[in-house]
């Protein structure tokens, strides 16, 4: 079993799963409805991730409960085609996660370069 110890501040550290990260990233520039999210995520991941509706709506439910996204009323959308958008809290979480990944990427490349130089 793998154990990961994170900083004790639960507000500060909330690990994002890949579906959640992809959904937040997809909603970062504009509101999207369900199928548009699936398409955009497929494009974002260069075709690697084709999210099923079960995975998508499971993640959307959690994000709505956490207040990271909200339903967005569009005049031309029916109940069958709800649009979602990021809230301020969701944007902050996404920024934090991207910062964390940037730092990790930087550190990883630095170590690779160092090991190549030896």
């Amino acid at each position: 079993m793998r154990h990961v110890v994170t900083k004790e501040n639960s507000l500060d550290v909330k690990p994002l799963t890949e579906p959640v990260l992809l959904i937040l990233t997809s909603l970062a520039d504009q509101p999207r409805h369900g199928y548009a999210l699936i398409q955009d995520i497929e494009q974002l991941s260069s075709g690697r991730v084709r999210m099923s509706t079960g995975t998508l709506f499971g993640a959307l439910r959690r994000l709505l409960e956490d207040g990271w996204i909200e339903r967005f009323e569009q005049e031309d959308t029916s109940r069958q085609k709800q649009a979602y958008r990021l809230t301020g809290a969701g944007r902050t979480q996404l920024q934090q996660e991207l910062d964390r990944m940037k730092q990790l990427t930087r550190a990883g490349f630095a170590r690779l370069r160092a090991s190549e130089a030896i």
Binding site: H33, G34, Y35, I38, T53, G54, L56, F57, L60, R61, R79, Q80, K81, Q82
Partner: peptide
């Protein structure tokens, strides 16, 4: 609770895909 909230929308997205 989940079905009431999402079933219609999930079916619609599934059919669109």
């Amino acid at each position: 609770e989940h079905r009431d909230q999402f079933a219609e929308e999930m079916t619609s997205v599934f059919e669109e895909a």
